[in-house]
Structure formats: C-alpha cells, structure tokens
Nucleic acid binder design. Structure first.
Length: 297
DNA sequence: TTGCAGGGGTCAA
DNA sequence: TTGACCCCTGCA
C-alpha cells in the first residue's frame, strides 16, 4: 500500500483501489444522475461504474472517503483530480448562489453535485444527440456510438467501449451512425465530427474568448444551438458562467422566479444577471431539483 | 396490450 | 416565430 498527499487530499492505493480521504460536497447520485454525463451506470450496491476516456472505473463512498476501483495514484493526479473537480471549493459556490429560499432548497437537495470536467469531443457529440431526446435513449445512442471505436474495455465481467475519435466517426459514415438509432441527428454528428477533424473550432481557441463569443463559435457546429453550446462549455469546464435553458430549467425558472411565460433568452439573461459568475452551478442544482420534484409541471 | 405524448432542441422558412 | 424532425420511453 502506498499513499500520498496531493493538493489537500490524503490519498492511498490499496490493491488497485484508490481511496481519497475526506472529500467534502460530493455525492455520487447527485453527480452522476444530474444529467451532465451519459456514461455512468448505477450498480446494485449503489456504486457507479463509468467510462472516461479509455478507462473504466467504479466509484463508491464510505463516509466521506471516495473509493475509485481499477486505477492507481498516478491516474488520480493526472486524471481523476480534475475530472471530479476536486480542487474547487463547492461550499463557497453554494454560499454565493444561495440568494433566496428556492436556490437554498435546490442546493440542499443536490448538495453533493459536482460538475465533471469532461472530454470536449465526447461532450459535444453527446449533447448534439440530447436534442429533443430523453435521457434513457441518449444513453443508449451514446453507448451504441461508442462501439464504433472498437476499443473494448473489460471490467468486472462486462464489456465497455471507449468513445470514438472524430476520425473514426467520420470514416464510418452516416449509414453506420444511423444504426445507432440517432435518427436525423446522424447528419449533425457526421458533419460536426468532420469539423472537429479540420480543427475549425478547438477548446483551446474557446478558452481565449469571452463566454458569449465562445458560445457563438461553438454554434458553428452542425446541430449545436444555444442550449447545447452552453452545455458543452459548462461540462468541459471551458466556461462556467453559462446557464443552459432546457424545458425543465424553463419550467423551474418561470414557476419560482419570473412568474410568467417568457422566452428562453429572457430566462438566460435573467439568470446571468441574478446568479452571476457561478450561474452554471446554479443551473445544475436547479435542473436536478426541478426534475426530481417536477417543478412547474 | 396498444396507443400516444413528449423528450436537457435545432434548423429552415 | 413556427412546425417538422427520428424514434424510443414511459404512462394511461
């Protein structure tokens, strides 16, 4: 067994299980079931198994200790620390955005949600697929699309697949994409993968722009409108001051804050003004809360 | 069991 | 601003 201190965390490796001691503000269900990622699966023991890049890990908690199976200390430093956003003070963010009773309730309900730092291309494709679609089917399509990579990963008796590279998706062509049952989105996935290959828009470029310009750049991708662009910015940690407005966020904002039927843009502007630089976090707590309680339906 | 509405929207007109 | 859009899932 080896151990280390890394950026405020005591971490040790016990036979292939990395244990991160005393992690605050982290709940597995809040994080993996708040709709930000489509590649995490709840297990019978309430742990979660997920595919991240070309790895498959299983995450569970004992008290405030987080157990990550099928990895090592080096990966914790290189990958998992950033992926789970462990360097961020969520207590501070929750305090700042809890400006009223509604947000306090939402934060209290989803207290352990963390915004995962996900891969740019995978997130872009996943949220193009999410348009006018439900979560169960999105997961199915993303899973089917992943098989194209042919990068099989075995873990605990099951087979998983890494998300494909843009070149692989492009070379497979629209016919193969249609077999993933993604319907009219196949053209978007194909065209946007082609654009990724050509480096028309890169995450590095977006990092240099202000949030509004970064959003405009992202909307150059096929099948990417305002909502999907903001999701991609948020879930890749490219920009955190975004507020994706979908049907649920529209409902909850109208029911609790605005009290009348307004446009998506109005809600977006309202939230930016009201919640400020951390409005992306506010959106996630509200989304999770709204869906659970069916607020506004 | 069958049938239908709606889904973390986007695009084109 | 409005309707079409693939097709699956959940619910009556």
């Amino acid at each position: 067994m080896s151990s280390l201190e890394y950026r405020g965390y005591k971490v040790y490796d016990d036979k292939g299980v990395v244990v991160v001691c005393d992690v605050k503000d982290f709940d597995l269900a809040h994080t993996f079931e708040c709709g930000q990622a489509f590649r995490w699966f709840r297990q019978e023991d309430d742990s979660f198994t997920g595919i991240v890049r070309d790895r498959v890990i299983n995450v569970s908690k004992i008290g405030n200790d987080v157990l990550i199976k099928n990895t090592n200390l080096q990966d914790f430093k290189d990958l998992w620390f950033d992926y789970f956003d462990l360097g961020r003070d969520y207590k501070k963010i929750k305090r700042i955005i809890s400006k009223d009773i509604h947000m306090k309730r939402a934060v209290e309900f989803g207290w352990g949600m963390r915004i995962l730092r996900q891969d740019f291309y995978e997130t872009l494709m996943s949220f193009i697929i999410s348009a006018n679609n439900n979560v169960a089917r999105i997961k199915g399509i993303v899973g089917a699309l992943s098989r194209l990579s042919k990068k099989s990963i075995a873990f605990e008796g099951d087979e998983y697949f890494a998300f494909p590279e843009p070149g692989v998706v492009f070379e497979n062509g629209i016919e193969a994409l249609l077999e993933s049952r993604m319907g009219y989105r196949a053209k978007y996935i194909f065209e946007s993968s082609k654009m990724m290959l050509e480096n028309l828009v890169t995450r590095e470029d977006l990092m240099k722009l202000n949030t509004n310009d970064a959003k405009k750049e992202l909307m150059k991708f096929c099948g990417v409108g305002s909502k999907v662009a903001e999701c991609v910015l948020l879930f890749t940690h490219t920009k955190l001051d975004v507020f994706p407005v979908d049907v649920w966020v529209k409902r909850v904002m109208q029911a609790l804050y605005i009290k009348e039927d307004v446009s998506l843009k109005y809600i977006n502007d309202y939230a930016h003004d009201y919640f400020g630089e951390y409005c992306g976090f506010a959106q996630q707590y509200l989304f999770y809360y709204a869906r659970a309680y069916k607020v506004g339906t």
